[in-house]
Nucleic acid binder design. Sequence first.
DNA 1: CGACCGATCCTC
DNA 2: AGGATCGGTCGT
Length: 199
Amino acid sequence: MAFHNVLSRHFYERDPLTVTKSLLGKLIVRKVKRGVMIGKIVETEAYIAPHDKASHAYGNRKTERTIVQFGERGCAYIFKVYGRNHCFCVVVGPKYISAVALIRAVEPIEGIELMMKNRPVKSTFDLTSGPSKFCQAFKITSEFNSADLCRNRELYIAKRGKNREKIIGSIRIGIDYAEEYRNVPWRFYIKDNIFVSKG
DNA sequence: CGACCGATCCTC
DNA sequence: AGGATCGGTCGT
């Protein structure tokens, strides 16, 4: 997937939920020395500050970790959970709010051998079917935190043909503490795609 | 500076 | 169903 197909700043600067949904079917491209890995995004979630209690930037909380969410749209927000697992988000929405789209799962398209090397598993169904599984397979770590996905050549998101698959909205995973935001349908996935996380 | 806990994954 | 595992965050 050539770099000229990369998603523009304008794409990310629209309404956060629209962007989070629109990312489904797009291609994540990860170039490494040994080759290229490409995955089709099949599952996403939106986190929208300041009101969303599941957002790290809830109440417009600005810390060293969350500061990226207040910057340029289209930049990567990468954080660690449970000490070892990385999660990959993109900063989205209009500039006056801080919101991100979390990439929860992708379908392996190209460079499956490279992914398998980074994350040795028996079945390809287990390769990228979760936010941290996908980061492991694609070698996405904190080194890319704040990277501009509109300019970076080693990690970017590109468009492809029209998406005709059906999109399902549901509640987000792993945020039971979010009180009244616990049940908002801000998780989106491609219907019947086997690479969607089991949650 | 100590305590708490998590936008997950893996192995029972 | 439960443990791993460690840095971000916040209260003292």
